[in-house]
Amino acid sequence: MQRVNMIMAESPGLITICLLGYLLSAECTVFLDHENANKILNRPKRYNSGKLEEFVQGNLERECMEEKCSFEEAREVFENTERTTEFWKQYVDGDQCESNPCLNGGSCKDDINSYECWCPFGFEGKNCELDVTCNIKNGRCEQFCKNSADNKVVCSCTEGYRLAENQKSCEPAVPFPCGRVSVSQTSKLTRAETVFPDVDYVNSTEAETILDNITQSTQSFNDFTRVVGGEDAKPGQFPWQVVLNGKVDAFCGGSIVNEKWIVTAAHCVETGVKITVVAGEHNIEETEHTEQKRNVIRIIPHHNYNAAINKYNHDIALLELDEPLVLNSYVTPICIADKEYTNIFLKFGSGYVSGWGRVFHKGRSALVLQYLRVPLVDRATCLRSTKFTIYNNMFCAGFHEGGRDSCQGDSGGPHVTEVEGTSFLTGIISWGEECAMKGKYGIYTKVSRYVNWIKEKTKLT
């Protein structure tokens, strides 16, 4: 034993070699072989497995989906700052455009905790909710729209109204504003409101030439003092309507412009014939205590009207009353817009006519005020429907199939267009061939041609 100890002390290297040989010859039971080890760690190889990531292109799944990435790591994937920024906006807080917040056709661009709407022409605001041009839906104005110097929408209202708090709607500024039905039992019968379409306001006024200088022999019209197929109006439903009495009662109609003036057809009036105007009328054979009678003290036909040349060209006249009318729910003026808007309103496509005229061709006159909704007829169809001249200051309205029309005794009465609950004068009943005849239409004086003249002559002093 002493000898062994001496050998170990003198030859430590020998001992180490012996131990190493023993270990190498022993069977290893701690580690699995290569094949079995792979069965336990069965993990798919990654895209760049075996390579240094710093030297390969980034992978979106590896960089940002398996674990949260930084902007720089995302930049490695896209290799483009702009594309990385677009991805980053949604990656950080989701897609803010998912709810489609942009209105009126706006395009949404996502941002971090926010979004941006790219608005089409005519709109602005956070969600493109603000109209900035009158060309689109009248700028959301209830009545009139004008573009300011910086191309912003400025709404306005006709006389007797003021802008509401929203700067879009119009509200009454006087007790009985024009064009409004205020009798409670008839307010439910107000005709369907007309909503502004998209309009090209630059070209809204037709490029028409008034044929002022045409000389033409007097034409022989049949029954051209021209509501057939209409309905009984309720008291106060058309408070701007008046009836004219002269040699015979209810020979023509008219509309209240203001307390002192009536507008009617020029062919209705004769110099030297006494005319009485009755406002607030409903049943011409009954006294309903809503009527107001006034005498006409002055007749002003349009300066281009000449019955000797043509009885229905420039067929418009103004009547001055001896005493002002007292405005109330049964006696209310009709609204008159400017030339541009009167023309736009007419193009809405349908209007209402009213009167006490004959209820059928050569038949009896109506006792109760009649009204009828009539569609506008395109000019080409209008011209083809008659052998008589249709001037540019006239328009056609009615039904091709016949059966409904204005008729004798309705002449001078109103053709009105309702705009968001307020009625505007767009025409004056003038003439036609018979009444409600198939293929024939009622012919009306186009008020847009005469609004400046009306307003100039009827100013209240």
Rank of each mutant, 00 (worst) to 15 (best):
I214Y: 12
V56N: 13
S423I: 09
R191G: 13
L425S: 02
C28F: 00
S49Q: 11
W356Y: 05
D249M: 10
T445P: 00
K168D: 03
N135G: 13
V277Y: 00
C407H: 06
A279N: 01
F87S: 15
E171V: 05
F224L: 06
I17S: 01
E72L: 15
K274N: 10
K339Y: 14
V92M: 11
E79C: 10
V154Y: 08
T264Y: 00
A164N: 06
C170N: 01
E53R: 04
G351V: 01
C18P: 01
A436K: 07
R62F: 11
F221L: 11
I390L: 14
I297E: 04
K362A: 12
G246S: 08
L369A: 14
K247D: 11
N59E: 09
C155L: 00
N283A: 10
L103V: 09
K459L: 06
K109I: 07
G403A: 12
I112Q: 11
D315F: 01
G253T: 10
S217T: 09
L189E: 11
E73Y: 08
T422E: 01
C157Y: 00
F424C: 00
R384D: 14
V242Q: 00
K89C: 11
C170W: 01
N104L: 03
K152T: 12
Q216S: 07
L130Y: 09
E433S: 11
V56I: 04
S255C: 10
E76W: 07
T16K: 05
L130M: 10
K339L: 11
F348L: 10
A207Y: 09
F388W: 09
C382Q: 02
G412K: 04
V199C: 15
P120L: 06
V195C: 15
S11C: 12
E340S: 05
P120S: 08
K137E: 10
L383R: 14
V374G: 03
K293G: 03
V199L: 09
G363W: 09
L103Y: 08
C28L: 00
C157L: 00
E27D: 05
T133I: 12
K137G: 15
E231F: 03
P301V: 11
F224E: 03
V278K: 05
T271S: 10
Y22D: 00
V451G: 07
Y341K: 14
R83K: 07
L318R: 00
K438V: 07
E340K: 03
G398Q: 12
K311N: 07
I7Q: 09
E456S: 10
A317Q: 00
H361R: 12
P301H: 06
C145D: 01
T264G: 01
V451E: 04
H314S: 06
C69W: 03
R3D: 04
T190W: 13
R373M: 04
S107N: 09
H267L: 02
Q167A: 11
I214Q: 10
C141P: 00
V277E: 01
K260F: 07
I300Y: 07
L60W: 11
L321G: 00
R294A: 02
I297S: 05
R226V: 10
A436N: 14
Y441A: 08
Y305H: 07
I112G: 15
P414G: 14
N135I: 15
Q167V: 06
K168G: 06
P235V: 06
R191M: 10
R46V: 11
K455I: 07
I15G: 02
R180T: 04
E129L: 03
V296G: 01
G236H: 08
G122P: 15
C128R: 03
K152D: 14
S255L: 05
R140S: 07
Q370P: 04
E159T: 07
E193P: 09
L369P: 13
K51L: 05
Q237N: 06
H303M: 08
D111Q: 12
F144P: 00
V92F: 06
E165T: 06
F71P: 14
Y201N: 11
L20I: 05
F388R: 13
V243D: 02
A436H: 12
T381V: 15
Q57S: 06
K311P: 12
V195K: 03
P197A: 08
N127T: 09
K126E: 12
P44N: 08
K51P: 14
N295F: 06
E285H: 06
G413N: 06
E142D: 09
F399C: 13
E323M: 14
N38C: 08
P239N: 01
H302E: 02
T389M: 04
C157D: 00
Q96K: 12
N393R: 04
D232M: 08
L372K: 15
Y371L: 13
Y441S: 04
Y115Q: 15
I336K: 00
G236Y: 03
D410P: 14
I300M: 10
N393G: 10
I334W: 00
G254M: 01
L32Q: 13
